[in-house]
Simulated assay, not measured.
Amino acid sequence: MELRIFTEPQQGATYDDLLAVAATAEELGFGAFFRSDHYLAMGGDGLPGPTDAWTTLAGLARETSAIRLGTLVTSATFRLPGPLAIQVAQVDQMSSGRVELGLGAGWFVGEHDAYGIPFPDTSERFDRLEEQLEVITGLWSTTGGYDFAGSHYQVKDSPGLPKPVQRAGLRGGVPVVVGGHGKRRTPALAAAYADEFNVPFAGVPDVETQFGRVRAAVEAAGRPADSMTYSAALVVCVGADEAEVDRRAAAIGREKGELRTNGVAGSPEEAIATLAAYAAVGVERVYLQVLDLHDLDHLRLIAAEVMPRV
């Protein structure tokens, strides 16, 4: 199982905070550094304020050398698909081919209100997501003269430049991550466009059920079963002893019992057992949501005591 670090900078983090976490994660051998793409804190004052996901990743692309970088997930409501394809391709070039694009429909109405971003209804947001996935992957794979006539986006005679360094995605280009809990459209979109499917913050039975839906959609699409990577995102709170678990849970404002139920929490042995349960239902990659970005010793503990055994 691959372990990746996943951050929520909208809760209050500077670029330098994120660089410290990414550099430490790279040094310790974690598979990737990912960040959310949000513009408003979900509780708390959010100071010093949000950072833009792709601006952050562009900087990290030049200040790291090996760790993979990406979003869980960029919201389709935030950007037009053509400019987003250019942004991601450029950051992929800047990183020498280490970028992955997580793309979703968007859900947090408060951040849209706070920053003047239109927020269509659920059906339209998924329609826009589907068209964005088609346009972005189409621009990356075209040899020129790309056209698309959708209900929400129209592209005419695009050269589809720049190209990403990576050409390993399902449709050529940067690997694409799709995720969520939807029963019908989400698995279908993943089967059509994604290299990875992610289930965020769910228990083992729910993850297993959702993976089953996606596997069925992948088969129906005529894809090889092994062409999809299956992952989960879980909050992490591990301590060398119970006092350290208490301290880390308090620092992020969570109850340690709830974290043990809904995340990867407790002693290293408990964390290993939890990850094994997810591995048993097909999880190949886990995004460990690190909420205290100043506690780099947390990453060091996980790298030393958990990562070698999963």
Rank of each mutant, 00 (worst) to 15 (best):
P120K: 09
M42V: 10
V236G: 04
R213E: 06
A76Y: 01
V165N: 01
P164I: 03
L40Y: 13
L28E: 10
L72V: 13
M1N: 08
H38K: 13
R300F: 11
Q10T: 06
G104K: 13
G138F: 06
W107K: 02
Q11D: 08
A216F: 00
T74Q: 07
D292M: 07
A58C: 09
E27F: 00
E244D: 11
A265P: 04
V109C: 00
V165G: 00
E196P: 00
G169A: 11
P81I: 05
S158Y: 00
A114Q: 07
S267F: 05
P83M: 07
T274E: 00
R260K: 15
A89M: 10
R213T: 05
R4C: 11
L28S: 11
A20E: 13
E196M: 13
T261I: 11
Q132H: 10
R35H: 10
A114D: 05
E269N: 01
E244G: 00
R247T: 08
F148H: 15
P50C: 02
G173H: 03
L170I: 11
G43H: 09
E244Q: 14
A225F: 07
R128T: 10
L291M: 08
P308T: 06
E219A: 15
F33A: 06
R35P: 00
G182K: 07
S123E: 15
S123H: 14
L84I: 08
V204P: 06
Q166T: 07
D37S: 08
R171K: 13
R215T: 09
F197Y: 15
A273I: 01
A41F: 01
G104C: 12
D297Y: 00
L60F: 11
E100C: 02
C237P: 01
V283R: 05
H181M: 12
T261Q: 15
